[in-house]
Design a protein around this nucleic acid. Structure first.
Lengths: 330, 330
DNA sequence: CTGAAAGCGCTTACAG
DNA sequence: CTGAAAGCGCTTACAG
C-alpha cells in the first residue's frame, strides 16, 4: 500500500494532526517542524489518499464531462481545454461518451454525479425540464446549450452566419440551402435561426434539407439530395456534414467551389484536409471548454447557482469551397 | 447531502451492517429483510459513497487512460472502446491527454495512479526503463507498445505492410518512400521494420523521409520533400501524415492516385473524406481498447503481473489514392 | 441471520 | 504551536 499520514507522523515524531496541517495549512505549523515534515513526506513519497480526504471534506476534486461523441472532431479541442483548465485548478476529469444516444445522456450524467463535484454537459440533447432538474441536484454547466436555472457557455452564431451569407451574396448567390442537424439539437435551432435572420436581412431565399446526423456518412446522403436541387450554395449544420457533402460531390464529378459552394460550421482541423479546403464558420472550441470549467468552479466555490450565460463570438473563415455560382443558378 | 447507509438502516430498523450486506452480498441476508431494505434504499435514492467504500476496500473502481492526443482521430475509437468495456465492468475511466508532450507522460500517469486501480497507456513515448518501473508500482497495460514486465496490446503490422507492398508492386511500383513518424515512437520502429522486411521480400527499393509528427501540417511538409524526389509511392507512418501529403500535393496540382500513390496507416474515418479516398492499412482500434481493459482487469483481479502481449492483425484497405505509376518512375 | 465494534486515511474543532 | 479525539460512510471479521 501507499504511504499514509500516520507513517509520516511516526517518522517525524509528531501527531497526524500536525502532519495534516503542515501539508494542507502550512501557516498553522511551526516553520521548523513544517520543513522537517515536508522533507520526510517527500522522501517517503507520501501522497494523500483521495478517498480519505474526500470522506471528510465531502468533495471529490473531480469534475465530470459528458460529450455526445469523442470521435466528432468538434469535441476533442473542448475536452482538451476542459482538462487543461481543470488540471490547473487541481481537478481531475471523468469523461463519458454517449455515442450520440440521447437516452443514455441523463443516465451517464447521473452515474457520474456520485463521483464528481460538478458536471459539464457538452451539446446535450435531453429535454430542457430534465436538464433543469439535474442542475438542481448538483452544480452543472452546459456547453452549447442554454438551460433555465443553470450556467452555460454558448456560441453566438449570428456574427458568423451574417458573414457567411454576405460572403455568398457578394459572390452572386441568391439562394442558400441549410443542411440541418439533428432535429432536437438546440444548436441546430440556433444555427437555423441565425441563418434565417441573415438571409432575411440580405434578401436571400432559404431552403432546407435534413435533418442529418453530424457524421460524414450523413453528409454524403445530403450531397445527393442537394445535387438534385436547384441551389448552388449550402451551409451545413457542421463540418462533418459539409465534408461528407464535398467528398460525395467531388466523387460524382462536381467541382466544389465552382459549380457548388459549401460552408461548414466549427472550423475543425479537417477543414484544411480536403481539396478545395472548406470555408467554415470558426467556433472558439478551446475557450468553450475553459469558460465552462471556470463557470463550474465558481459555482462550486461560491456555493450558489449562477445562471450566467457566457456567449462566444464566431467568424467566417473563407477557403476554397465557396465561389461564384454558375450563370443559370444566380 | 446524499442519503447514507445509516439513514437506510434507520428507516428499516436494522443495523448498517445488515444494509451493507443486503446491498453487496444479498445471499447473506434473510430474503424478506433484504427485499425490504432494497425497496427502502431505492425509495430513498440511496447510492453508496465511493469514498467510503474505497477507503475500506482500498480500490477505486476506476481505471486511468493516458493518450498522446485526443484530437488525433486514431485515439477516439480506442477511448470509446475502453470506456464501453470499463463501463460494462462497472469501472469509471479517468482520461489524461499529454498533448504529445513526452515529458508530461509519466507525470500524468503518476498523477492518475493515486486515483485509479490500474492504468492504460496508449502509444507511450517514455523510455522503456521508466515504463517498466511504473508497471512495478501499479497494474499497467500498454497499448501500441511492448514493455518488459507488463501486459500490452499491440498491432502486428507485418500482414498489412506485406499487403501494401504487394499492392504497390502489382501496380508496377519498384520504389517506395516511407514517411517516418516520431523518432522515438515504438510503433514507428515496428512499422519501419515491417515495411523494410516487406520491401526486401518483394525486391523493392526503400527510401525514407522524416521524422514527421503525426499531424496534418507535418504531412504537408512531407509532401514538398516527396515531390522533389523521384519516387511515385509513399507509405506514411499514419493517416494524418498521409492526408496532409495528399492535401498539399493536390493543392500543387498533382493527381494523387495517378502521378503519385499514397498509403496511410490506421484507416481512420477520415480516409474516406478526401478525393481520391485514402488507401490505408486498417488497424482494429476498438479491439485495441477492449483488449487492454480485459488485460488490465485480469491483472487487477488475479493480482499477478502477467506479461501477456496481445497481438492484433492488420490488413490493407484499397481505395483511390494508389494507382499505376507514370512510365518514367516504374 | 443479525448486530456491535473496529478500522480504512484523513481533517478539524477542542483543549492545553 | 501541538495532540487526543471524534467522525466522514462504508465493510468485515467476530460474537451471538
Amino acid at each position: 500500500m501507499a504511504v499514509t499520514l500516520a507513517e509520516v507522523a511516526a517518522a517525524c515524531n509528531v501527531s497526524t494532526s500536525t502532519v495534516s496541517r503542515a501539508l494542507t495549512d502550512p501557516e498553522k505549523v511551526n516553520a521548523e517542524t513544517r520543513t522537517r515534515i515536508e522533507r520526510v513526506a517527500r522522501q517517503l513519497g507520501y501522497a494523500p489518499s483521495r478517498a480519505g480526504r474526500s470522506l471528510v471534506s465531502g468533495r471529490t476534486d473531480t469534475v465530470g464531462l459528458v460529450v455526445p461523441d469523442i470521435a466528432n472532431p468538434f469535441f476533442p479541442p473542448i475536452i482538451k481545454s476542459v482538462q487543461a483548465r481543470a488540471r490547473d485548478k487541481r481537478y481531475a476529469v471523468l469523461i463519458a461518451d454517449t455515442d450520440e444516444h440521447v437516452a443514455d445522456e441523463l443516465e451517464l450524467a447521473r452515474g457520474l454525479s456520485r463521483q464528481v463535484d460538478g458536471l459539464i454537459l457538452a451539446s446535450p440533447r435531453t429535454a430542457p425540464a430534465e436538464l433543469t432538474r439535474l442542475a438542481q441536484q448538483l452544480p452543472v454547466v452546459f456547453v452549447n446549450r442554454e438551460v433555465e436555472g443553470a450556467g452555460s457557455v454558448v456560441i453566438d452564431e449570428n456574427e458568423g452566419m451574417q458573414e457567411a451569407v454576405e460572403h455568398l451574396v457578394s459572390l452572386g448567390h441568391r439562394r442558400i440551402t441549410y443542411l440541418a442537424g439533428p432535429r432536437r439539437s438546440w444548436s441546430n435551432q440556433q444555427r437555423r435561426d441565425a441563418l434565417s435572420k441573415a438571409c432575411a436581412d440580405n434578401d436571400v431565399e432559404l431552403r432546407e434539407l435534413g435533418p442529418f446526423e453530424p457524421q460524414i456518412q450523413a453528409g454524403m446522403r445530403a450531397a445527393d439530395l442537394l445535387q438534385s436541387s436547384e441551389v448552388a450554395a449550402a451551409i451545413a449544420y457542421d463540418d462533418l456534414i459539409a465534408l461528407g457533402v464535398m467528398s460525395r460531390l467531388t466523387e460524382r464529378g462536381m467541382q466544389v467551389g465552382r459549380e457548388i459552394s459549401v460552408i461548414g460550421i466549427d472550423d475543425s482541423p479537417l477543414s484544411t484536409v480536403t481539396h478545395p479546403m472548406l470555408t467554415s464558420i470558426h467556433v472558439p472550441a478551446a475557450e468553450l471548454g475553459s469558460a465552462a470549467v471556470d463557470l463550474l468552479l465558481n459555482q462550486l466555490h461560491d456555493d450558489e447557482t449562477p445562471t450566467t450565460t457566457v456567449k462566444l463570438e464566431t467568424r467566417l473563415v473563407i477557403r476554397g469551397s465557396t465561389g461564384i455560382p454558375p450563370e443559370n443558378l444566380r
